[in-house]
Amino acid sequence: MNEVDFLLWVKGSAFNIALFIFVAGLVLRLFEILSLGRKVNYAVPKGDPMQGGLREIFRRFGTDKATFQRSMITIVAGYVFHIGLFVVIFLLAAHVEVFKSVLGFGWPNLSTPVVDAFAVVTMIALVVVLIHRLQHPVKRFLSSPGDYVAWAVTFVPLLTGYMAYHHLLLSPQMMLGLHILSVEVLLIVFPFTKLMHTFTVFLSRWYNGASMGLRGVKS
C-alpha cells in the first residue's frame, strides 16, 4: 500500500466505517442515557424548569470571579482550546467541504493562516491542560486512562493536520492520510469516552437547570 492508496483508503472505506460508528454510537449513547427515565416530580414548582434549564445551558459558559481565580488555568486553557477546536474544526475551508459533503450544506470559512494560528494556540493550550492534569493533585488523581486517551485523540489530529499543511516530517499525502486517520480514530472513540460531553453537556446543564428552575433557584 503506497501513500496514495493509504490516503484513498482513509478517505474512502475507513471514513465510512468511522462515520458509521460515530453516528450510530452517538444515537445509541443517547438512547442509553434517556432510556433510564426520570421520575415525575410532585413538588409544586416555584419556577419554570424549562426556563431554568435554558438559563443554565448558557450561564455555565461563565463563572463567578472567585471560582475563576481558584481554577484559572483550567478555565482559561479550557476556553482557549475549546474555541480553538471550534475554529479549526468548523472554519477551515477544507473542513467546511467535508461537512458540506456529509451534511449537504456548508458555511463560510476563515482564511487558512488564521486557522493555522488557532491550531497552534489550541495545541499549546492542550499541552498546558495535559501538564496541568499531570501536576494538579486532584486532576491527576481523578484521571483514568480514558482521560488521557481523550486528550490524545484530540491532540493528534491537530498535530497531523498542522504537519500536513506545513509539509513537515512526512510527505503531505502521508500526513494528510494520517491526519484523516487520526480523525477517524477520534470519531470512533468519541461516543464511548468523555468526549461525549460535547453533546451531553447540554443535557446535563438542562437537567440541573431544570431542577434549579423548579426550585426557583436563580444563580
Partner: peptide, 22 residues
Amino acid sequence: QIDAPMASFFSSCVSCGMCAEA
C-alpha cells in the same frame, strides 16, 4: 436510583477537578 440525569452527568464529566475547588 440511576436515572437519565445521572447517566447524562456521568457521561459529561471531563475530570476537570473544578468541583474540588467548589
